[in-house]
């Protein structure tokens, strides 16, 4: 599983960073970025799905 963030859609709600700080980081402007290449270890897949389900701007996507 891999996660991606669309930085055009991201408005800095900071939900992904709050729910899955192992997978996402935020820059000085509050915009989310994936950590590393966005690969999701098996034990963090649930957290990745939570991040998707809580992004108000639909900026996060999962590739299985």
């Amino acid at each position: 599983m891999r996660v991606t963030v669309d930085s055009e859609k991201c408005q800095g709600h900071n939900r992904c960073f709050a729910l899955a700080p192992e997978l996402f980081d935020v820059d000085d402007y509050g915009t989310a970025v994936v950590i590393g290449d966005g690969s999701v270890p098996a034990d963090l897949e649930e957290k990745a799905r939570l991040a998707v389900a809580n992004c108000p701007e639909f900026a996060i996507e999962i590739e299985e």
């Binding site: 709600h13 939570l50 992004c55």
Partner: peptide, 15 residues
Amino acid sequence: RQENRHGAFGLGIHR
């Protein structure tokens, strides 16, 4: 609630 895309802080560029 597990799925919660609320807009309490607004939606779009004026978040």
